[in-house]
């Protein structure tokens, strides 16, 4: 992601104090534990021209839940900072297509790839086919559509552990659909889905890899497969 942004002429900073958005805590029911992480996020990132995040579910957490959480915390200056910051928080593909208005970022990736639409990107962020537009503009890529594009991979944070069996069945459908495309790699805008899918593809001893969209867009020599 850094490579793509710098190639496009942007200055990237990485606030060293950043940790986690708190989604896992919040979504599992530990709202109280997530609250300080919101304050931490605001402290780390306030003043940024744009905050670019490589995982759609983290952005969904910030957009959908941070305002409500800030209301609960009840500090007016925190709410004010958050309100200033949030409109400038972008998921990576969204930053490229919506803020910068780009589809071709000069990548070269001569491989057969399929795209998985992560639920939070699809439904909470409304990414639409933005990520596919970026992929279609990659030179050399053979982009193949997956059956059940909008079906959840079954990760869902602690869901994968608490309801491991159902999660596994959902995942099996997803990996079958990926294997049916005969793609070399599956890409997405969310690391958690990719980690989940990669875990099953590896267990099944398939050579198919997962690769983050940013890694494809960063590729100029086309050499890397994940």
């Amino acid at each position: 992601m850094v490579r793509v942004l710098e190639r496009l002429g942007h200055t990237v900073e990485f606030p060293a104090g950043q940790t986690c958005c708190g989604q896992m805590h919040y979504n599992t029911g530990y709202q109280a534990e997530a609250m300080p992480l919101l304050e931490r996020f605001v402290a780390q990132f306030k003043g940024a021209e744009a905050v670019v995040v490589p995982s759609s579910s983290c952005v969904a957490m910030m957009r959908d839940h941070y305002p409500i959480m800030a209301e609960h915390i009840g500090k007016p200056e925190l709410t004010a900072e958050l309100n200033k910051l949030l409109p400038n928080v972008y998921e990576f593909s969204e930053f490229l297509t919506k803020r910068l208005g780009l589809t071709d970022v000069g990548a070269y990736y001569p491989h057969k790839v399929t795209y998985h639409a992560s639920c939070h990107g699809l439904r909470n962020l409304g990414l639409g086919d933005g990520p596919q537009q970026l992929l279609r503009a990659v030179k050399g890529i053979d982009l193949v559509e997956i059956a059940g594009l909008e079906q959840c991979c079954g990760f869902g944070g602690t869901f994968a552990v608490k309801n491991a069996e159902v999660s596994s069945a959902m995942l099996a459908e997803k990996t079958n659909a990926i294997l049916n495309t005969k793609a070399e790699a599956c890409t997405a805008c969310d690391n958690s889905c990719l980690m989940h899918i990669q875990g099953a593809l590896h267990r099944q001893r398939t050579p198919v890899r997962t690769i983050h969209l940013a890694e494809i867009l960063a590729s100029e020599d086309g050499a890397v497969i994940a």
Partner: peptide, 9 residues
């Protein structure tokens, strides 16, 4: 539950 059907890198 994770490692029933998945590996973890």
């Amino acid at each position: 539950g994770w490692t029933q059907v998945r590996d973890l890198q």
